[in-house]
């Protein structure tokens, strides 16, 4: 090993934060692409408005609140971590994970309601009736919310791992990074909610 003690540190932004911003930019472009494609199709097919009626605004709104609340708790966790209150930071992180779980539960209730109505990823009944265009709305609905749900799961896993790590006194600065990621997940939902639930 070389003598690294003289390593020069000219960083202005902490390394992790810089990487996280880059990752978030990349993720937002993926969702941005998907949302742009959805919007183009939405303009092309006005009949999608009638399909959006089947999505439950109430459940969507509750989920929005749940996610916003969990974003709030992760901010609190970051705040406590800065003050080195590990136990309280862990508590708030745990609450964030609970929020994520609640979000996923509500989402799955929604999914099961829709699936029982025959509105699935491919909606074969609609296609058989020759209403393929309408079934495409549901394909978009599932791919967008599904991809978002995957990010929720990824975020929860990350927060859980970091929660364990800070319990051992390691990587306390990573609470902030997890928070940034969670805010991104939240932000994407803020876009999805009006697009899929409110605009009918």
């Amino acid at each position: 090993m070389s003598n690294n003690t003289k390593a020069l540190d000219i960083r202005q932004v902490p390394q992790g934060r810089l990487a996280m911003w880059t990752l978030i930019a990349g993720e937002l472009i993926i969702f941005g692409g998907l949302i742009a494609v959805y919007l183009l199709n939405r303009i092309r097919y006005p009949e999608w408005g009638a399909e959006a009626v089947h999505t439950s605004t109430m459940f969507g709104a509750i989920n929005t609140c749940v996610l916003l609340l969990s974003s709030f708790t992760i901010v609190l966790a970051h705040n406590e971590a800065n003050k080195n209150n590990i136990k309280r930071a862990q508590l708030y992180m745990f609450l964030t994970i609970v929020g994520g779980l609640a979000f996923l539960c509500i989402k799955s209730i929604e999914y099961s309601r829709e699936i029982s109505e025959g509105l699935t990823f491919t909606s074969p009944a609609m296609v058989a009736k020759g209403e393929g265009v309408k079934s495409l709305f549901w394909s978009f609905y599932y791919i967008m919310t599904g991809l978002h749900a995957l990010h929720v799961i990824a975020g929860m896993t990350t927060i859980f791992i970091i929660m364990m790590q800070i319990g051992k006194g390691k990587n306390i600065h990573r609470v902030e990074l997890a928070g940034m990621y969670w805010h991104m997940v939240d932000l994407v939902w803020i876009f999805l909610f009006p697009l899929l639930y409110i605009a009918k």
């Binding site: 993720e27 472009i29 941005g32």
Partner: peptide
């Protein structure tokens, strides 16, 4: 690369489905 591949990642996901 980062700023152009996002939409294709979304597209690849759609194509895979």
């Amino acid at each position: 690369f980062m700023f152009s591949c996002g939409p294709l990642v979304a597209g690849a996901f759609m194509l895979l489905l």
